[in-house]
Design a protein around this nucleic acid. Structure first.
Lengths: 233, 233
DNA sequence: CGAATAATTGATCTTAGTCAACTGCTGTGG
DNA sequence: CCACAGCAGTTGACTAAGATCAATTATTCG
């Protein structure tokens, strides 16, 4: 089972990209610009959606919290992504929470305005459909990886996925700067375990580590590790 | 974290239910009736979608196979469900496979016909959007459960979910008749482990077991187990 | 009926989770 | 600017959940 990182990428930026200039200006007329500090909640599990969020700068995580306090992170959103539309579109409470990982700037579009846009821009629905059907495949892959691959392989894979996300914007800086706890909650393991594996990866020359930051050193060997099925060591 | 089984249910039957009688007849005019024996593939990972499937009778599983041969099952479809539309709608190869668990009857709607219906029945898109945004929440919950809950709790939860599915059609028979291997691949564990836990559940009076068939005996205690977070035993 | 398949059971081993102690970094106020 | 509090990360020892292996017993189906 070859792991292609693009099969783990949402494409919600396409929802906005698909608009013409006129439609975009129509869209942006209805938005409200907001800035949040690091560690602030955009929405939370159980809450009632009041609109959607277009991330202009920064990164956020969507996650679910267990009673024992351990989060499971499903996705890291970055610049250009549209967030929080699922619960709004099916008119149900949020199943997940969204929190800023860095200082963020984003546009908020109220429920009413978003619903209107869906009516006035017919092809927006098509893009939404295309986007969500793609996301289904991504979720399927995430489930398969979390349920079937051992932690070492998951770490290799998610490092590659995250690197792509962190590289996208600032080419000179492909370092992954997530706190260890968040990274652990993405790959679904304990902090301590993650630390041990990172150390091992560093000793094996797979990554550079500088304080919090992780930089991939040998992507092809990581890729190979991510593809491995009980053939390692 | 209270586990509500309806938060683990797709609602793809609504896609067809939302049609008026006239629209339905338009829809059914474009379908082809098919019967498959048990264990036959409707579509498979990597394949190119050529249409969608409406399940009239029987049950199917969607799953992904790892190199080591161990499957991860994401969902069991039953009567009324529309299957295989995600890959078609995003114009990508299937990320998952679909196989009959019993003899099945279903209607096949070709890609061309389905696309036409999407144009001629405008509100069909709305239902699709509503449905897929709902499914996103379901997938989020599945990920959280598989990643965070121990096998015993997962088994309790999935038994309740499956019972609801098996009860829906034939009220007199709420028995879950999946092969052990499939059940193991749903809750994400090994056959042997599943067997031991089922034995334990039977001895504790939670379920009746007759050959392959599992019948829930004490749903409220199972529910309690599913909700537990390391408070069991 | 008997071969093939599925389920059960027991024993052992491994991964990864937990607990606990320690180190080091960061930022704030004196 | 330094000290210290608080938090993030590291390390090691221990434990337990669950996987794997191997052998046996039921069940199903041709």
């Amino acid at each position: 089972m070859k792991m292609h990182i693009h099969k783990f990428a949402f494409e919600s930026h396409k929802i906005i990209d698909s608009l013409t200039d006129a439609e975009k200006s129509d869209f942006f007329d209805k938005t409200e610009q907001l800035s949040f500090k690091k560690g602030k909640l955009l929405f939370y599990e159980g809450g009632i959606p009041s609109g959607v969020f277009l991330l202009k700068r920064g990164k956020t995580k969507i996650f679910k919290t267990g009673i024992d306090g351990k989060d499971q992170i499903f996705y890291i959103y970055s610049e250009g992504d549209l967030m929080g539309y699922h619960a709004l579109l099916c008119q149900e409470p949020y199943e997940d929470s969204c929190e800023t990982l860095e200082p963020c700037e984003f546009l908020f579009i109220g429920k009413q305005a978003f619903t209107e846009l869906l009516q006035t821009i017919p092809h927006l629905k098509d893009t939404l459909i295309q986007n969500m059907s793609h996301e289904f495949g991504v979720m399927v892959n995430i489930i398969a990886v979390l349920a079937q691959k051992p932690v070492r392989e998951r770490l290799a894979l998610f490092l590659l996925i995250l690197q792509a996300k962190y590289t996208k914007q600032t080419l000179e800086d492909a370092r992954i700067t997530l706190p260890r706890e968040d990274l652990a909650n993405i790959i679904g393991t304990a902090r301590e375990n993650l630390g041990r594996l990172l150390k091992e990866f560093r000793e094996d020359g797979l990554v550079f580590i500088d304080k919090k930051a992780i930089l991939i050193r040998d992507a092809s060997r990581l890729q190979h590790l991510a593809d491995a099925n009980y053939a390692y060591r």
